[in-house]
Design a protein around this nucleic acid. Structure first.
Lengths: 74, 74
DNA sequence: AAATCTGCGGTCACATAAGACCGCTATTTA
DNA sequence: TAAATAGCGGTCTTATGTGACCGCAGATTT
């Protein structure tokens, strides 16, 4: 373990992402189709397994049709 | 060039970051001291040279005393 | 029962952010 | 005029996110 642990933030982000996706009534594969991100990866993100990059946040927001800032509103 | 190009989004993020930093009257080194991120790296981020991770967005927000979402509000 | 959908876990090569440095050029100030 | 201060560019190693896959269990639909 070299750096700090960010799994808590990753989980918060993931929970928020999943909540928004459910609100939009989208399945993992449906969202995946909208944003060119593999569905298994979105699953991992929702479960707090990744410290994703800015570009991925942008893509997810696009696929969900929300503002990028909304994904960080938690 | 393997993936998409996100420099435009990186630049927008960087501009926004710099604007907020200036609003707070902080120098690169002052902000760096607040968030444990090297000042030269913050400079590069502000100039759109990095596709930073979620954890870095969180750290910058902490150092600037703003909400993470504010950094994506552009 | 069979087909489909949904969420999720794992693999592997590759690209790149992170982290910790150094040092230069201006500009400001003591 | 010397010394901080501010912005920025470059280097090197290491850690890890990305992208593209595969396959499975459980629920739902036909």
């Amino acid at each position: 373990m070299v750096g700090k642990d960010y799994t808590s933030i990753q989980k918060q982000f993931g929970d928020n992402l999943q909540k928004i996706r459910h609100n939009k009534g989208l399945s993992l594969r449906a969202l995946a189709a909208n944003c060119e991100i593999d569905d298994s990866k979105i699953s991992k993100i929702e479960n707090g397994k990744f410290n994703i990059k800015l570009s991925t946040i942008i893509e997810l927001a696009k696929g969900l049709e929300v503002k990028p800032a909304d994904l960080l509103d938690f």
